[in-house]
Design a protein around this nucleic acid. Sequence first.
RNA 1: GGAGGGGUGGCAGAGCGGUUGAAUGCACCGGUCUUGAAAACCGGCAUGGGUGUGAGCCCAUCGCGGGUUCGAAUCCCGCCCCCUCCGCCA
Length: 410
Amino acid sequence: MLDIRLLRADPDSAKAALRRRGPAEPAKVDRLLELDARWRELIAAAEECRAEQNRASKALRGAPTAEQRSELAALSARAKELTEQEATVRVEREAVLLSLENLPAADAADADTVIATVGSTQQRGRDHLDLAGPRIDMERGARLSGSRFAYLRGELVLLELALIRYAFTTLVGHGFEPVSPPVLVREEALIGTGMLPDTEQQLYKVPEDDLYLVGTSEVALASLHRDEILDLTDLPRRYAGLSSCFRREAGAAGRDTRGIFRVHQFDKVEMFSFVEPSRSVQEHERILGIEEQICRDLGFSYRVVNIAVNDLGASAAKKYDIEVWLPGQGQYRELTSCSNTTDFQARRLDARYRAAEGKPAHVHTLNGTAVTSSRTIVALLETGQQEDGSVVIPEVLVASGAPAVLDAAV
RNA sequence: GGAGGGGUGGCAGAGCGGUUGAAUGCACCGGUCUUGAAAACCGGCAUGGGUGUGAGCCCAUCGCGGGUUCGAAUCCCGCCCCCUCCGCCA
């Protein structure tokens, strides 16, 4: 959610920033300010009426006379009417405010821009499904749950556990507190993170209980400090969440149908930071740095992409993706992603901190992927593959309990 | 799932239809006193919104949303959450 005060004070800058997201966006600002102006008139009138009512009510002691009573009743009725009008406009105003996407950062890219490349793109080979063989069981996964569901089996499960273990060891070293959150959440949590109304079609719903399955633990982690005011000394707060993630992949039919590159359910370790506003830019770089470190630890060739403004999603002001070189596909593919959502989520969640001076202010929030049981494993298989079809596993994972080598599939 | 009890300021805890945004205590921040500290005493100490250059003024908020009433923290209804007991269960 954007800061209405900012929009009032300088609508043109906001409109210019939003225009980068799409031609229709700036008009929403005008619409909002129009509603806001009307709302302010109505709230002032309603409050004045209530003030009058309060004055009259306080002036008397005990029960009013019949005459007083009818005067008070008239005031009360008028206040109620004005409040109803005010509420109608307020609801509309809030809906528009909620529909506005975050202002892109000045240095968010106009078009996807590669800002760093590490490793080579020479490697070619088999794809992850070939290499995994029966250790990725798509057929039975589909029989159980439908397409895009897979069983991981045997050594791949140990590999996943090692990957998670390695990720937590790394992140704890960087000051992140491990969290294992609920994955079924209320609608508010999704509105709070900007997933709703933005990515509705991507979410699984459980209407019977009015809950949603999260698409990422970002949702649960962001809500950790919902409606809270943190002390300045509490910041930064960094969390590493482990959770299953659920995505409907509606509209992706036919895309990436082979293997576990794009599945409806996977596990992920996610980073999430709450920071002072002045620190979010450097925190974003820090999170990107950790993602890069993980890629290097795992022996990946990758590149870092500054994501185009029109591809940011509602809540991000700026986003980096890391694309990993997949020898089986002969191309770079998205592996991780990290976003600076500035105060956009914090405002929706009402997550604040108490600055040294002045009023509580909204924090900034950021998120980034550490590892996943889908794409990270795909990359490990394809990158570590040998001539004979066996796969060498990186030392850091072996140290966390992974097999040193996965035998060639039979 | 069934039966009870309960949600009040950072915490504890009064109030249960009329200057109650809310007693009191603790915590916290100033000040007096003290060589310093403690104690004692004095003062301050919620959040959001509207309005104003500003001091300020006004409105709202006692889990959330409705309702009754001239007036609700207090009465009624719905929802959420917590606790106790029973049942069920990984």
